[in-house]
Nucleic acid binder design. Sequence first.
DNA 1: CATGAATGAGGTTTCATTCAT
DNA 2: GATGAATGAAACCTCATTCAT
Lengths: 222, 222, 222, 222
Amino acid sequence: MKAPKDPTPDIAIEAIEPRSRDADRSQLAILASARDEFSSRGLAGARMDSIAERAGLNKRLIYYYFGSKDDLFLAVLERVYADIREAEQRLHLEEIDPVEAIRQLVSFTWNYYLEHPEFITLLNSENLHCAAHLKRSDRIQEMNSPLVQLLDTVLERGRRDDLFRAGVDPVQLYISIASLCYFYLSNNHTLSAIFGRDLRAPKAMAQRLSHMTDLVLGYVLK
Amino acid sequence: MKAPKDPTPDIAIEAIEPRSRDADRSQLAILASARDEFSSRGLAGARMDSIAERAGLNKRLIYYYFGSKDDLFLAVLERVYADIREAEQRLHLEEIDPVEAIRQLVSFTWNYYLEHPEFITLLNSENLHCAAHLKRSDRIQEMNSPLVQLLDTVLERGRRDDLFRAGVDPVQLYISIASLCYFYLSNNHTLSAIFGRDLRAPKAMAQRLSHMTDLVLGYVLK
Amino acid sequence: MKAPKDPTPDIAIEAIEPRSRDADRSQLAILASARDEFSSRGLAGARMDSIAERAGLNKRLIYYYFGSKDDLFLAVLERVYADIREAEQRLHLEEIDPVEAIRQLVSFTWNYYLEHPEFITLLNSENLHCAAHLKRSDRIQEMNSPLVQLLDTVLERGRRDDLFRAGVDPVQLYISIASLCYFYLSNNHTLSAIFGRDLRAPKAMAQRLSHMTDLVLGYVLK
Amino acid sequence: MKAPKDPTPDIAIEAIEPRSRDADRSQLAILASARDEFSSRGLAGARMDSIAERAGLNKRLIYYYFGSKDDLFLAVLERVYADIREAEQRLHLEEIDPVEAIRQLVSFTWNYYLEHPEFITLLNSENLHCAAHLKRSDRIQEMNSPLVQLLDTVLERGRRDDLFRAGVDPVQLYISIASLCYFYLSNNHTLSAIFGRDLRAPKAMAQRLSHMTDLVLGYVLK
DNA sequence: CATGAATGAGGTTTCATTCAT
DNA sequence: GATGAATGAAACCTCATTCAT
């Protein structure tokens, strides 16, 4: 049944719930629309009008739910970080053989960036603004800390099996893996332009993944 | 006869101080100012007024010389690419021992990005726009091709000395070196925010350089 | 319930005085103001600022309702054409004796142009632009076709009564009537300047009307 | 011989001539270019840059020779009036049979407007500005008075031959002839748009000339 | 005679945001 | 919860004109 929009207040609780589901749906629609707009045009280039239009909702509603353009941008960032970390959790690297775990982490990262190009451009925008939005967020650090711990246990297991070299910083390693995947995709357009080469060709993409895996394992393995 | 201009040709654009009635000087002042504005605020966030003001020149003059905001942005891009490629040439990698050459290339790239943060943000902006500006440039490819050839000869020499593995694609390798340096700096703000760690601390920076060099040499060396 | 609007529908746009939060009223106020500005300064010479000011509304609202200067200009043109054609309909020429009908059409045209000098200058502007705006209009032709049919029946009746010559093209005749009235008024300023004669003097004006009627009847009558 | 405009007096005549011819040529080039620009874009729409470019000369030179945009516009107007009046003189209507003279005047006017569309649009622009420029001109009236006298003698001769009706005002008649020719061409674009008919088709054009001649002679002849 | 460099004022248009319902 | 109407500030860009040579 559709949620009634009648404003009369003394209404049964059953009827209220659908109302808040409508609200949720609106907020999600705005978030999705905002994510697309911000990622394709940047923070300054994004238009509140376009976001409202893409969401099929009135512009005023964005302000009602999110306060301002900057607040909305932060909401989008928190959302996309939550999404990637959640997906990483689903890899269950802690249960896998360490070498395979590294392999999987590289290929997961590569594929996630590939399938979520908006993640890359949103981070670029936020970095342009010196992470001014994220710095105001309480939830962002706690969202990201499990990842480091996880990678640390993988490295530790690898070292105990005498496969991995000692003294590898999990943060440095994570950043390196991210670097290799991120940059290739994030700067794909300029690289293609300056090298006159189609870096998106299937063969080039496959080579890239194998190259990156070689690089990382070449470093981690003893 | 024309008034003699400053005789030192490859002067940093920072040093330009506009004086009346000198077209070259005005153009350089605009370029330097535009580079700073675009890099700190992005293409959409940059303000033509600010560019004019920073350059100490009338806004109208920007249009007189560069036509439009987008054309100016392209001019800036061409300029910064020319600068980095020129600096790379000055390394004379072709004259150095191959292992040392790789080391130098990594550390040069790291330091160049470090000293020219605007290069990073400008490229990010251009990638946000799918390299739409660079694609219109005639000069950009020829500017960048020498680099690949140079790296290729370094790899070839290393292989002939039986030090380097075979089959290393110079473009892939260059992209990997750039990746490692670029991402750490470009995403420094968000990484610091999510990991709650100061990645700019001198010790962290030194570790990073050594980590990257290890990674790259671990891959290239037999 | 919506606030009731002014019930009299065919109110002259001059009389519109904008009040807050009434879309129709605002649009009419903009149209009236734009008509005055465009007609007195031409398309290029008209200022959006002035239009907004005359309308007593924010400039942004013009773009909200009409999109652009050119679209606004087209809206004005459609409006003034609708007005004159409507006024012509009100003559009910189809019910009048043919000779008298021609007389009335001449004098109506003369007086309409006289009382609506903006019509003349707006058409001049549009012709300067090769009717680029009208060509994009769907409604303009259907608005104007009844006129030709009407004039045709008048001529046909006159011919059946053996008063009018045969083979008179209603379009040619209409254009001739319009020509005679239009040019005298449209070029009044330059004509007065070159002939050094006040063509607007009441006597000159009366002579003109009688001269034009003579000319037209002299041609139509057998 | 032309009066030399060079202010330096003690210079060889040989040297002056080419220089002042250059100056004349430049002024003529500017006038022609300005006439085209003003006629195609109107006074407000015309661009001094375009005029300079079309003339192949530096913009500053326009100010040097003509002072300002408005002064240049007046210069153009005086020029085109001089041209048409000169062409009319060349008809030598005073030597022709009166009926034929009227015929010729109609067809000359028609063809002149046809071949000089810029005359029409320039006059429209000047009328939009209430002949503000022409009113400042000393030469414009004396340029135009011979025309009226000429037409008057033609009418007088026709009347003496008992062919023409009495009491025809030469100014009214001239205006009517001009009206019929001018309006059809000046408003050609809007008329074509509203009637959905190609008024420029050769057949339509021929019909128009014959229609106008009929109209005028129908009135003048007894 | 001629010109490239430069500008202040002002043009159209856009924007995030708020108002009133 | 939702919306159309409205706005001040500021964006990019243009223009006639002047400067300095």
